[in-house]
């Protein structure tokens, strides 16, 4: 797959962020162009989740600029960022365990006011994820890990985002379910949604992505087309176990 050219949909410039005294991002630069699937890899604690959290407004950036679709979104509330078109599928799935599948999906559309379209989308999502369609009245906490991942993705889709952030979608899932999940993400991108994905499973992620970034201690240390990163010696040694 080749990366589309043109102006970026999302740009991070020299972004700094911290949890109290603990620095998480230290001068991060990153860009995602429309239609791309970009993956972000790095060791534990490198700041991958913090990057996504800064984009979606959960972690306030202390310095730097975050621009989405030509508009500065750094400092906006998560609700406004979601409304601007960025949905975040968080690490560890984070479905609401004591809400039903339907209620979880409705939470995904919380900021939308077009009620009729939301109802249509609910039906469409259920068609797309038959596993969920059979369990609409079931509490999300009783779903299997794979089903919860489907629900988390479907919930994020309910916001009709233009950019989707995935944080370790393969975490804790059986290999066949990982494959299904990645298939769904590829499909989402094929339908025109831009994707920025954080993944521990660097090999699978880079094989699917257009471009990749490598992160260490809060900043980007390497970037390039996914195929090049797969062949890169440093990446192979540090992240691909070879």
């Amino acid at each position: 797959m080749s990366a589309p050219d043109g102006p970026a949909l999302l740009t991070l410039e020299d972004v700094h962020a911290a949890y109290g005294p603990v620095a998480a991002l230290a001068g991060l630069d990153l860009a995602v162009r429309p239609g791309e699937l970009v993956c972000l890899i790095g060791a534990n604690g490198a700041g991958k989740s913090s990057t996504l959290r800064a984009i979606s407004g959960l972690l306030r950036a202390g310095r730097g600029r975050i621009v989405f679709d030509g508009r500065e979104i750094g400092g906006l509330e998560p609700a406004e960022i979601l409304r601007a078109g960025i949905a975040h599928c968080p690490e560890g799935r984070r479905v609401f365990p004591h809400l039903t599948v339907d209620e979880n999906l409705a939470m995904g559309a919380y900021v939308r006011r077009d009620r009729r379209a939301v109802t249509d989308d609910l039906e469409r999502v259920c068609e797309h994820f038959p596993i969920l369609a059979e369990r609409r009245r079931q509490m999300a906490g009783t779903l299997s890990g794979g089903e919860q991942q489907m629900l988390a993705i479907a919930r994020a889709l309910m916001a009709r985002p233009r950019l989707m952030l995935f944080d370790e979608p393969s975490l804790g899932l059986a290999p066949t379910v990982v494959e299904t999940t990645f298939g769904i993400i590829a499909d989402i991108r094929r339908r025109g949604t831009t994707v920025l994905m954080v993944e521990q499973n660097a090999y699978l992620a880079l094989r699917m992505a257009d471009r990749g970034y490598v992160m260490e201690t809060g900043r980007i240390v390497l970037e390039g087309p996914a195929a090049e990163l797969l062949a890169n010696d440093h990446v192979r040694r540090a992240y691909l176990g070879g």
Partner: peptide, 13 residues
């Protein structure tokens, strides 16, 4: 109540 941070991510104030 179940997960305030994720609720915020859904746009709940």
């Amino acid at each position: 109540f179940q997960d305030a941070e994720t609720a915020a991510l859904m746009g709940v104030k």
